[in-house]
């Protein structure tokens, strides 16, 4: 399993994945610097104020969409000239291949989150923030956003195994991501929409008494439930896929 994970990493390392990973801090800088920072009253911690704005765009659009690109990238070699055949003819089980691709992906998403954290610091320096850095809140949102992508990554991995072309799996991603813009404004529907969870879990203005800004029940049922659904679906599909 470890060796499989290493070989997966080796394969993607040579692709352009590094550019995709660095898109995250770039987006962070872009929305942090261009978006302005002085929209909040003085009482609000400057960092928290900036984060409220940055995280919204980041978690609403960038994070869900980029998981799809990463998923398609880790399946790219296999879709070229009989790669699935070659990989599955090795002494590995399909289950382990799926697991190692999934693990690699969530680690990549974690890297994306950490790089984004880096961009938050830079934004603060650029704007000359003097308030204390709210470490606890920031970590909560970085990790929370990461956890919220688990189901999204599972679905995108499924779609990336299913479709050869990036455009096809990306379309599925877009179809589910765009309604989030409305979902987050709806108190009835929003909490149940898996693609809206990154926004809630990175919302630094959320309920700070909770461990992850959202109630545990919501985390377990919506994030956990959709994760199980998409992960098992993709896993079973991959077991039966003829290569």
């Amino acid at each position: 399993m470890i060796s499989l994970l290493q070989s997966e990493w080796y394969k993607v390392r040579k692709s352009n994945i590094i550019y995709i990973l660095f898109a995250a801090p770039l987006v962070g800088l872009l929305i942090g610097i261009v978006g302005g920072s002085s929209v909040f009253p003085v009482e609000v911690n400057q960092w928290a104020g900036a984060l409220l704005m940055m995280n919204l765009t980041y978690a609403l659009l960038f994070l869900p969409l980029v998981t799809g690109v990463l998923a398609a990238t880790v399946c790219r070699y296999e879709h070229q000239a009989g790669g699935w055949k070659q990989l599955l003819a090795l002494p590995v089980t399909r289950g382990k291949v799926f697991m190692s691709k999934y693990l690699l992906l969530i680690m990549l998403v974690l890297v994306v989150q950490v790089l984004y954290l880096g961009s938050i610091f830079v934004v603060g320096i650029v704007h000359g923030f003097t308030d204390s850095f709210p470490m606890e809140i920031v970590w909560k949102s970085i990790l929370g956003g990461w956890v919220a992508t688990f189901p999204l990554v599972a679905l995108q991995l499924w779609m990336s195994i299913l479709f050869k072309s990036f455009a096809a799996s990306f379309s599925v991603n877009v179809i589910f991501t765009l309604p989030t813009i409305l979902a987050i404004n709806s108190e009835k529907f929003g909490p149940y929409y898996p693609w809206a969870q990154p926004v809630f879990m990175m919302n630094v203005g959320g309920d700070t008494s909770e461990f992850f800004f959202i109630p545990w029940e919501q985390l377990i049922t919506v994030v956990g439930g959709s994760f199980l659904l998409f992960f098992i679906g993709g896993f079973l599909y991959f077991q039966r896929k003829s290569v």
Partner: peptide, 23 residues
């Protein structure tokens, strides 16, 4: 060759258009 590149560029574009007001 790698369609990840135009798609990542596209994601940037979407985010920029989302922030059109500030641009």
């Amino acid at each position: 060759k790698n369609q990840g590149i135009p798609i990542t560029l596209g994601i940037f574009g979407v985010i920029l258009s989302y922030m059109a007001y500030f641009l």
